[in-house]
Amino acid sequence: MSALITPEKIKQEISRLPAFPTIINELLAVLEDDNSSMMVLAQHVERDPVLTGNILSAANRLLRTEGWPEVRDVYTAVSLIGFSRILEIVLTTCIANFNGNFASQHFLWAHCLATGVAAQELSSKAKHNQNGALVAGLLHDIGQLWLAYFRPLEFQQARLQVEVHDADVCEAERAMFGMDHGEVGGIVAEYWHLPKDIIAAITHHHNPDDKIARDPIVAAVHLAEAIAYALDLPRRESNAVSSISGTACRTLGIRWDDEDSFALLGVIDARYQHALSVFP
């Protein structure tokens, strides 16, 4: 059975998805500048009590684990946690809430969280755009959400090919839909006007060619997903690494035979467990 989809069809149907949080694009545009980022955050906090409540809720979960009293406003949270951590909380909370609109399995969120944390850590080590990598990692499987939302039966059939018949996920999706979840996700990300490197990271996260893997965010998300699967963060029987791009490793300056790789994997593992307690 085939249920071919086209880029036009995807774009037509995106408007029926819950609205993508505009604060993410606004923050991505000014991430390098703390003052501008703070202004964007302040504007949204003033007009969006639901967003503010969600940010405070995640900030308080973090503060509780650190033995601090609860806070009731975002500015106090910034002073206690620091602006860069609040920025991570805002970006992750917005994407977690967006994902929460879908009746998807908890596994997918935990997998995206692991990929986001790993992409951020890889970018931090390579001194690239950490928050861009975090967002790209958190959104890398957005194409699966689209497929699960608009083509639930066919999506389940493609998943069955993976779970029961051990098919490669991208091949199973291409056989069913004519494109895989990376390509679908790239079209969705383009529709949302996300930055070009994030669109490329979402589109090519399974198998970036050498030219595309020279982009640091593409490289980070590709390797981050492989790490999430290789360490079973979280565990699912069908976890599978599809490929490792040598160009991606070199783009980020990672040598797996280096003794630092043990610490890199350890830090990602521990940070993922920590993040899961703040963004369950």
């Binding site: 051990d166 290789a230 690494v241 490793c249 043990f262």
Partner: peptide, 27 residues
């Protein structure tokens, strides 16, 4: 477990092999 996770990859490729070995050393 790792052989199962890497079942779709070519472990003859040096980068993939090095990543497999790093994941094994950690796990």
């Amino acid at each position: 477990r790792l052989q199962k996770i890497f079942r779709h990859t070519n472990l003859g490729d040096p980068d993939t092999r090095a990543f497999f070995d790093a994941a094994l050393a950690y796990r």
